[in-house]
Amino acid sequence: MLRDRPQCDQPAPGTGDLAGRGQQLRACPLHGAVPRRHALLITQDALGLPFQPELGGSGEGMLTCCLVIEELTRVCYNTSYLLVMTWQPFYAISHAGTAEQKERFLPPLIRGEIKFSTANTEPEAGSDMAALKTRARPVPGGYRISGSKVFASNAAAADYFVTFANTDPSAGGKGITAFIVDANADGVTVDAPEDKIGGRAIPSCAVTFDDVEENRLGAEGQGFVTAATCFTKVRPLVGARAVGQRLHPTRRQRRARRDRPPAPRNHRRE
């Protein structure tokens, strides 16, 4: 367990090996680096940190998860980014999923056998969940979804999407429903990764759903609550990532000041 906040130049207890190996991945090629980072997280049993023990996880709390994210970010932003993107759909499924959905998706997610992407941002609505244009219409046996999403992190490597669609446009936020979509289903199109400024090793893509059959996640009309719960859980992790980014240059600056030769003194002329 990670209970003590680390000093600036010291890794948090129990994270030294994980952070050290993460540093080796900083020079990875861009989009091809996802499997290597994913393999590192599997080896270190990091994927299952917040998952319940009965699902095969470690059952760690938010403090531990934040410290791990902070330490990883100090040496490799993209590795911590991938870990947060793995945990984000976990929070959604653990909040709204049925017992069958949790048993089907969460243990393989912990073992690294499947990958998820969360697709919520839209070209016109942005991240305003109440204004989503993607529509889901009920059909016998389920729903069919049509619409477009952008900036879906890890979409190019995902096996499934957690996404959100409007089942009742007249109800505003209460008409939003969450779904799990198979990335290989007919009608799913994942565009080429965006040419981003940062976080380039984790591909962000536009995704189009064209009359795709999907599984509902949670009750109809409860998607806004599911999204809010999920994103609230993720916010401390994003904050920890920011702290890790700040500490990395600070550590380098302190080391540079320590190692550089002393500046010559200014001598007054007699």
Score class of each variant (00 low, 15 high):
Lys149Glu: 08
Ile114Gln: 06
Arg111Ala: 15
Ala136Val: 11
Ala157Phe: 13
Glu113Leu: 08
Arg111Trp: 01
Gly59Cys: 08
Tyr81Gly: 01
Thr43Arg: 14
Leu132Trp: 03
Phe161Trp: 01
Ser127His: 11
Arg104His: 09
Leu67Met: 15
Gly142Ser: 03
Ser80Phe: 02
Pro123Tyr: 10
Arg104Tyr: 07
Met129Cys: 02
His95Thr: 09
Glu54Val: 12
Gly59Glu: 10
Ile42Lys: 13
Val75His: 05
Pro138Lys: 14
Glu71Arg: 01
Ala157Met: 12
Ala92Pro: 05
Gly48Ser: 06
Ser127Ala: 10
Asn120Asp: 05
Ala119Thr: 05
Asp45Thr: 00
Thr73Leu: 04
Gly57Thr: 00
Leu49Tyr: 03
Val68Thr: 11
Gly57Val: 08
Gly57Leu: 03
Gly147Val: 13
Gly56Met: 08
Glu60Tyr: 12
Gly142Ile: 04
Thr73Ser: 09
Phe51Tyr: 12
Val84Gln: 14
Phe151Gln: 13
Ala99Asp: 06
Leu83Ala: 01
Thr64Trp: 03
Met85Asn: 13
Ser153Gln: 09
Phe151Asn: 15
Cys66Asn: 07
Ala125Val: 00
Ile93Met: 08
Pro138Asp: 05
Pro53Val: 07
Leu83Arg: 02
Ser153Ile: 02
Leu82Ala: 07
Pro138His: 12
Phe90Pro: 05
Met85Tyr: 09
Gln88Ala: 07
Lys102Cys: 14
Arg104Gln: 12
Ser58Cys: 13
Ile114Trp: 10
Asn154Gly: 11
Ile93Leu: 11
Ala119Gln: 01
Arg111Val: 00
Met62Arg: 07
Ala155Lys: 06
Gly56Phe: 11
Pro138Gln: 15
Leu106Phe: 06
Leu72Trp: 08
Met129Tyr: 03
Ala125Pro: 03
Ala99Asn: 00
Tyr81Thr: 07
Ala155Tyr: 08
Lys133Gln: 13
Val75Trp: 00
Gln52Ser: 12
Glu103Asp: 08
Glu60His: 12
Trp87Ala: 04
Ile42Asp: 10
Tyr160Gly: 09
Thr98Ser: 15
Ser127Pro: 09
Ser127Lys: 13
Tyr77Gly: 11
Lys115Met: 13
Pro50Thr: 02
Ala119Ser: 05
